[in-house]
Nucleic acid binder design. Structure first.
Lengths: 150, 150
DNA sequence: CTTTTGGAGTTCCTTAAAGAGACTCCACGA
DNA sequence: TCGTGGAGTCTCTTTAAGGAACTCCAAAAG
């Protein structure tokens, strides 16, 4: 994609988009998350061009979201999520939830999520980290924070 | 951006990316969310080209995420979130949360979120819709769902 | 040894999308 | 009747994505 350069926008959404805003990046993270860790696997599964895959992987590694790890003493590498990257999976789960809800169509959702803690098929919901109650679009006020633009 | 056509991927993440995967789209939604509803406002605030803004708005309206609403009997329109679009704000809040946590730097987060229900400055956390406990990358198993590919 | 193989990229060329900025259209108000 | 402002189009240049062939390298095969 075009050099997104939203980063200077004093907006955490824009900054996040600088890391994973290019359209293949979330799909790459999803694949790595579910255990597709190698270049050729990713290329074949996504149908992405090798050139762009190289660029995206380098970018994600450079941003500290993926880690490039040799798995042989030949030039062979696997990509794994870092902690920073694993926390982006939150985003993937919310995306998947919205897609399940609004775009799944007749057939129903392609993937189900079973929560270890309760054993149930479920999905994510957004709660307030402070009080634990529901926290969606209409439930909050926005205030300027310490890092707000001048 | 390039015609992303992930939709046929039997993946709700890919389908969601077909709706808002183009890099400006989340920022457009953010602006509309916080009350920037008009073409020229959006164009000036984002610095996006008018051509691309037109395309993105049409796409988002076509997907039922935004609604184009006349506010005068001249050709003047405002864009507003539909229910489908308002639920995408979940995604924006999670993006913002991740950016706040990993990219905010010295100055701290540019925006704070005050939760109506408890009155506290807070942020979103992902919980299981079924049991209410924490639900993140490592807390789930993925199973094929009814809409899974053959 | 020499050759083959397979993973992991590079390179090059073509096509499609983004950016910039000038131009259009239209109804109201002066 | 002209000027204004919002909401777009049009056209041209630049940049990114796709596709497919090519390279590099070490272990294994012959």
């Amino acid at each position: 994609m075009q050099r997104t350069n939203f980063g200077e926008m004093a907006c955490s959404i824009a900054r996040t988009l600088d890391v994973i805003g290019e359209p293949w990046s979330p799909l790459i993270l999803r694949d790595v998350w579910v255990g597709m860790n190698r270049f050729d696997q990713l290329q074949a599964d996504l149908g992405i061009s090798r050139k762009v895959l190289t660029e995206r992987l380098n970018h994600l590694v450079g941003q500290g979201v993926l880690e490039r790890r040799p798995y042989d003493n030949r030039p062979r590498y696997e990509y794994h999520l870092t902690q920073k990257g694993a926390e982006l999976v939150d985003l993937l789960m919310v995306m998947a939830g919205w897609g399940d809800r609004w775009l799944a169509g007749e057939a129903g959702p392609p993937v189900l999520y079973r929560h270890h803690a309760c054993g149930q098929i479920s999905h994510v919901d957004l709660r307030c980290a402070h009080c634990g109650r529901s926290m969606h679009a209409g439930d909050i006020d926005l205030l300027p924070g310490p890092g707000a633009a001048a």
